[in-house]
Simulated assay, not measured.
Amino acid sequence: LNRLETAFETQNNFISNASHELRTPLTIISGELELAINTKQDAGKQHTALTKIKDETDRLEQILTSLLGLAQSGFNGKNQPWELVRVDEILWEVIEAVNLVHPENKIEVDLSKLPDDENHLVIRAIKNLVKLAISNIVSNACKYSNNNVVTVLIECNQNIVSVAVTDRGIGIPQSDIQHIFEPFYRASNTNEFKGYGVGLPLSLNIIRLHRGSIGIKSQVGVGTEIKVMIPINS
């Protein structure tokens, strides 16, 4: 009964948070449209209002895309293509993509613990989903460290390949860590950073789909390490 009550509470919280996140840009869009309609003679104000509408529409699209990804990652994966892929190859693709979006970042890859046997880097995966999961984590590390150096370490222990992403950023308060994988939850010290609180929950869903797990260690003012662990294909 307690588990059922917890499930209902989690669902209610998710719906409440999702409604709030969707309502905010819609409210702004509605207000700016009204402003644009009422300022027909002022081209400058109209342009400003329309630009704001465009920004909020893009924001709404990002939220909906994230929500869709969050929902899809909760499926059993039976209808999606699974293949054998190397984790290091996925990582290089992630870094290339992050560099295109955030060219000012500083990502360093530590290959000192790569396994001698290349087979220990191979996992059975839905490649695009794993790429998305790791990309969310690397992007967050760059963002919340104000583009200080982010280190990515790949290693393999006891048939588990791991990718550890370590930043030197703002860190996560201990009281927030237990909630950090809840949809739409944002740490109390992230108000200055743009975000929706969907990336990490999405990453966790994806990694769990691959029979893996995510670990996190953090200290405020020092930085955060998030480690993705996935069983190798054996």
Rank of each mutant, 00 (worst) to 15 (best):
N2K: 15
N2R: 15
L4E: 14
F8W: 12
T10M: 07
T10G: 00
T10K: 15
Q11K: 08
N13Q: 14
S16H: 10
T24N: 13
T24F: 14
P25K: 03
L33V: 02
I37E: 09
I37D: 05
N38R: 12
T39A: 02
Q41P: 07
D42S: 10
A43R: 11
K45R: 15
A49G: 05
E56H: 13
E56G: 01
E56I: 04
D58W: 07
L60V: 06
L60T: 12
E61N: 13
T65A: 14
L67N: 11
L67C: 09
L70A: 11
L70M: 12
L70E: 02
S73E: 02
G74I: 05
G74Q: 10
P81L: 09
L84I: 12
V85F: 14
V87I: 15
L91V: 04
L91A: 01
I95N: 11
E104D: 11
E104Q: 15
K106L: 08
I107W: 02
I107R: 07
E108K: 14
D110C: 07
K113C: 06
D117F: 06
N119G: 12
N119Q: 15
N119A: 13
R124K: 15
I126N: 13
I126F: 03
N128S: 14
V130R: 01
K131L: 13
K131E: 14
L132Q: 15
A133C: 06
I134M: 13
S135A: 07
S139R: 04
T151Y: 13
V152R: 07
C156H: 10
C156W: 01
I160A: 02
S162V: 05
T166L: 06
G171F: 05
Q174G: 13
S175Y: 03
H179W: 04
F181P: 04
N191K: 14
F193A: 02
G195W: 05
G197N: 01
V198C: 03
N205F: 09
L209W: 01
S218G: 14
I226A: 10
I230G: 01
S234I: 13
